[in-house]
Simulated assay, not measured.
Amino acid sequence: MHGLCYGFVLWEGLSKSCVVGAQFALLDTVREWSDVHEYTLQIIIHIALWTNGGVAHNLASRDKAMVVTLESVPNGGGDSIHISRAYRVFDVKIARRDEDPFLRRYWREEQAPNSEARAHNTGQEPRHPALAGTMHVALTIRGTAFALQFPEYDIYRPYMHTAEAIPPQFFCSAFKDLDVVCRRAIAAGIVLSISDDPAGNFLALPPPDFGIYERDGSGWKKVLNPTMVSDVINPDMARHPSKFVSGLPFQALWVLLGKW
């Protein structure tokens, strides 16, 4: 994931050297996992903002943060399994500092405001024309006192609407389905990726590429699957109708994403 980050881990009953070693190992694992799934996490985070008051509403408050709770996948960190399968997304919420125990304990007081003014205050122009501001994002692991934190995570306005806009119910239903697709893809180790488009919104692009990491000698390589949507994603949606509310296939969900 883009931006500066820092992390905290607490393990009681361990020696200082053990804690430091385990802390850095876990930080490296989660950072690598978040880099692999960066684009999918961007979609999940923005959907949470759009469907919970809109971008401007959430960036207006200095003490709001996005907390993404991960859950370890059994054997997900083994050498025989790629890092893309190490965690699944358990929960995503927008919380104020005083509402979340981890934020209360580890929030850095020097965090800058969640607004576009930050870019101008530092004398830097926004690096993307659709940038609405930045927000504090924390990746936590369920059942631990761990967080990988991004104090200045880039947040973009909708492609066809202002940052103040709130999607109507039809769009919200589609976005919630897309959120489920993204979470299930992450849990299966499916990686969404897309080419850079510095001239416009990162969402206003053709549908993403889908791929998985496969063994390549002693290393790994990402193998793209151009039929992943028709062979895997849409059939998975059809097999689990109770998890989806719009009744739309992935292609239609993506079209609505670009229209918002």
Rank of each mutant, 00 (worst) to 15 (best):
Q23H: 14
F24E: 15
F24G: 13
A25D: 14
L26P: 04
L27Q: 11
D28E: 14
D28T: 12
T29F: 12
T29A: 15
T29R: 15
T29K: 15
V30C: 05
V30R: 03
R31M: 08
E32K: 12
W33H: 14
W33D: 04
W33G: 06
W33M: 07
S34V: 12
S34Y: 10
S34T: 15
D35V: 11
D35I: 10
D35H: 12
D35R: 13
V36K: 11
V36A: 10
V36E: 13
H37N: 09
H37Y: 07
H37L: 04
H37G: 11
H37A: 08
H37M: 01
E38S: 15
E38F: 14
E38L: 14
Y39I: 12
Y39M: 13
Y39S: 12
Y39D: 15
T40G: 13
T40Y: 08
L41K: 09
L41Q: 11
L41I: 13
L41P: 06
Q42G: 15
Q42V: 11
Q42Y: 14
I43F: 07
I43H: 06
I44T: 00
I44E: 04
I44R: 04
I45C: 09
I45N: 07
I45S: 03
I45G: 04
H46I: 01
H46F: 05
H46M: 04
I47N: 00
A48W: 05
A48D: 01
A48N: 04
L49Q: 05
W50H: 07
W50I: 00
T51K: 01
T51S: 02
T51N: 08
T51P: 02
G53H: 02
G53I: 08
G53W: 01
G53P: 07
G54P: 08
G54R: 02
G54V: 05
G54Y: 05
H57D: 13
H57L: 11
H57P: 06
N58S: 02
N58A: 06
N58W: 02
L59S: 01
L59C: 04
L59V: 04
L59W: 02
A60C: 08
A60N: 03
A60Y: 09
A60Q: 09
S61M: 10
S61Q: 15
S61V: 08
R62D: 09
R62Q: 07
R62H: 09
D63I: 01
D63K: 10
D63N: 12
D63Y: 08
D63S: 10
D63G: 03
D63V: 06
